[in-house]
């Protein structure tokens, strides 16, 4: 894909442009994304500042974006992109940053639980083709060492028939696993 003259050569912004088509230069820092972000006050960098970090094309600042907690806390609710006057698809950029941060092992320490959740979630699908809630939760607890969480909730859910004990393995499970492994190879990341 062609490079974009508005992004600095070899910067994270350029990689973002190449892989998502989004130019960080389009952001004029109006802050409408941060104004509407449900989690702006909980993050280390509100969304507009993540873009600001990327606009310099400076490796130190790029690293700050990759190591930020924001990218992990982003809920992908898409409020920012739906209202952005410059049509910047910020959730797409967040996805890219998460993927890179994870791949490069630069995720924020506080993102541990979130990554653990994603691992458990995807692991469950990779095993059976579908997400098995109970198994996923158990696996998450193992990964996050959060054994006490929701201890009181689980029996209530079981009582209401909301948790199944056994996973459902689909016929195409092997196909799904091949798909997982192929995409992982393509990204140079192993599960």
């Amino acid at each position: 894909m062609s490079t974009h003259s508005s992004t600095v050569h070899n910067s994270l912004g350029e990689q973002i442009y190449q892989s998502t088509g989004q130019s960080v230069a389009c952001c004029y820092q109006c802050g409408k994304c941060s104004a509407g972000c449900p989690l702006a006050s909980e993050t280390d960098y509100p969304p507009n500042q993540i873009l600001r970090l990327l606009q310099f094309g400076d490796s130190t600042l790029d690293e700050k974006a990759l190591r930020s907690l924001t990218i992990w806390q982003c809920l992908t609710c898409q409020t920012c992109s739906a209202r952005c006057p410059q049509e910047v698809d910020l959730p797409k950029i967040m996805d890219f940053l998460r993927q890179e941060s994870w791949r490069q092992g630069r995720a924020h320490p506080k993102a541990r639980n979130i990554i653990a959740f994603h691992r458990s979630f995807l692991g469950s699908i990779r095993m059976t083709g579908r997400m098995f809630e109970l198994g996923m939760i158990m696996d998450y607890k193992r990964r996050s060492l959060n054994f006490l969480q929701d201890l009181l909730l689980a029996p209530k859910l079981l009582f209401r028939g909301k948790l199944h004990f056994l996973p459902h393995r689909i016929d195409g499970a092997k196909q799904v696993r091949r798909l997982f492994d192929a995409t992982a190879r393509k990204r140079g990341r192993t599960e």
Binding site: R98, F121, L122, R130, T183
Partner: peptide, 20 residues
Amino acid sequence: DWNCCGASSGHAADHLLSLA
């Protein structure tokens, strides 16, 4: 024989996976 769509974890991990 439907499978899981990957939900929010898919696109956090891998763009291609989140589409596949």
